[in-house]
Write a protein that binds this DNA or RNA. Structure first.
Length: 269
DNA sequence: ATGGTTGTAAAACAA
């Protein structure tokens, strides 16, 4: 992708923030402490007209691409670097704001996705939401197979694929996010473009690696019933540019937290 | 095994 001889570094973050307006304090803390160049958000829960742009501009993030809607869902990409608006795909064909794709000036595409959670019952005949989730991922597979160019695909995929991506493989086998049919589809998505799972490149299985802990636990850290629902995948042509990766687990303990922790990958091109 | 919490937005619904 980039052809310069000098090394160019880039720090990209992804965070399901569960309402960007409810998280003003902690998103500021995150940006101040970690200084990513690009922040991809999921579940912004705000229409574009009400997006808190001033908060981000004040912190030096002057470029924003928004795909929001009323009440639920919503994604955004916030950046210190200029970017071009590439696409906003609707893999459910129902108008839900779950994707935004941009291209940076160095040519890297960033595709930010919020896969549907899928409801409670892992059976599409009684729970249409589960079927919509499977169909959404299948349409991503069709899209991903045709993609070209250096691409970072990231976001809340709402699937924890590996046994070590959940606190108990056995107890979650029939829980939406870790069922075999979802895992099989997510694996097919990964294979469709030979995506490199950056999380597991830096924290290899079977090491513990979670990005989400339920609000319902009395003490999320003590019970540690986590799942790795959030992912960063790099196209194979530039995967070696990734030089570091972290899940900022501490953010789960900040005041009024999201139930997801932010992920950061650093690149050197 | 069930229930536990949060955000949106004004009663449930989605997660």
């Amino acid at each position: 992708m980039p052809t310069k001889s000098s090394t160019q570094t880039l720090k990209v973050a992804s965070w399901n923030i569960n309402s960007v307006r409810a998280r003003a304090e902690i998103v500021e803390r995150f940006l101040t402490e970690h200084q990513p160049d690009v922040l991809c958000l999921q579940e912004t829960k705000v229409v574009n007209d009400s997006f808190p742009e001033g908060l981000f501009r004040r912190l030096g993030y002057n470029h924003m691409m928004l795909n929001g809607q009323r009440m639920h869902h919503g994604v955004a990409i916030i950046s210190k670097l200029p970017m071009r608006d590439e696409d906003r795909l609707d893999w459910q064909a129902n108008g839900e704001a779950r994707h935004i794709g941009v291209r940076l000036e160095n040519g890297l595409r960033i595709e930010n996705v919020y896969v549907p959670a899928g409801g409670d019952e892992p059976d599409r005949s009684v729970n249409p939401k589960f079927g919509q989730k499977l169909d959404f991922i299948q349409r991503m597979i069709d899209w991903s197979g045709r993609l070209d160019g250096s691409t970072l695909l990231l976001g809340d995929f709402n699937v924890a694929p590996l046994e070590c991506d959940v606190w108990s493989h056995k107890q979650l086998l029939n829980v939406v996010s870790h069922t075999p049919v979802e895992v099989e589809l997510l694996t097919a998505l990964q294979n469709s473009h030979n995506w490199v799972d950056l999380g597991r490149r830096f924290v290899p299985a079977p090491e513990r690696l979670y990005t989400w802990w339920s609000y319902r636990a009395l003490d999320w850290a003590k019970s540690d019933r986590g799942r790795r629902l959030d992912h960063m995948w790099m196209s194979p042509d530039v995967a070696t540019a990734a030089v570091g990766h972290q899940v900022i687990e501490g953010a789960r303990s900040w005041t009024r937290p999201s139930d997801h922790a932010p992920l950061i990958t650093e690149f050197a091109f």
